[in-house]
């Protein structure tokens, strides 16, 4: 059992996350991470780097801290955040870049983690909903609570990240139209949009000007 891969079923009586968390610890105890250039054959041309199909070492900055994991070429950024890194804020809902529940910041800009290969963002900075709440976006999270901007909560981490990006970009001058545009790629089947937009605007009022 590797620490990468896709979330699926497990044996009855054990949640898949518990199962995988246990497997991850077992693997961590007994194995070291794979070398980054494992598949780079000695005769490979200088202008071509080859990775996989097995996992290779991947280092990226997540919520401000450097993290190193094993990731296979097919692993998305969302897979890596949720499984080896255990950051479950970003949700795997559609897994096709159509719902926004996995929205994270890549070098400060919102992207869908499900639609990014993890190895493509080596060395770059990723901020998840956890990082937003624990950092500059705390006021946005507080505004979500104050404005009752969630119902079932599944879209909330993605909405929060999208709103935090809009507040960071526009500061106190954030308009309703800009907040609407910023959250256009985040779907909420409960229909919390009006409260989400209120929360974004309320948080923006307290943000420092830019």
């Amino acid at each position: 059992m590797g620490r990468t891969g896709h979330e699926g079923g497990g044996p009855p009586g054990l949640s898949r996350r518990e199962l995988l968390r246990g497997a991850g610890l077992a693997a961590a105890a007994g194995a070291t991470l794979l070398p980054a250039a494992r598949a780079l054959a000695a005769d490979a041309p200088a202008d071509l780097r080859v990775q996989g199909p097995d996992a290779v070492e991947l280092t990226l900055t997540v919520n401000g801290a450097p993290r190193t994991v094993a990731a296979a070429p097919r692993d998305t950024l969302l897979d890596v955040l949720r499984l080896p890194l255990d950051l479950t804020g970003a949700k795997k809902v559609c897994d096709r870049g159509t719902c926004g529940a996995c929205t994270v910041l890549l070098d400060g800009k919102p992207v869908y983690a499900c639609s990014v290969l993890a190895l493509d963002v080596a060395g770059r900075s990723v901020t998840t909903a956890e990082g937003v709440v624990g950092g500059a976006g705390r006021a946005v999270a507080d505004a979500f609570v104050a404005k009752d901007a969630m119902q079932c909560g599944f879209c909330t981490p993605g909405m929060l990240v999208a709103c935090a990006a809009a507040v960071a970009e526009h500061g106190p001058s954030l308009t309703l139209e800009q907040a609407r545009a910023a959250t256009a790629g985040n779907l909420c089947r409960c229909g919390t949009y009006p409260h989400v937009l209120e929360a974004a605007l309320a948080a923006a009022k307290t943000a420092k000007g830019r």
């Binding site: 598949a39 041309p45 202008d47 071509l48 780097r49 080859v50 990775q51 996989g52 199909p53 097995d54 296979a72 070429p73 097919r74 870049g97 639609s115 990014v116 290969l117 190895l119 493509d120």
Partner: peptide
């Protein structure tokens, strides 16, 4: 699972694609 080929020149990208590798930009 797939083997990920990461050229740093257009020429190497052409070689890999001509050799049957699926061409990907950012992958959306």
């Amino acid at each position: 699972a797939f083997r990920y080929e990461r050229p740093t020149t257009v020429e190497a990208a052409v070689r890999a694609h001509a050799g049957g590798a699926l061409l990907k930009a950012n992958g959306i």
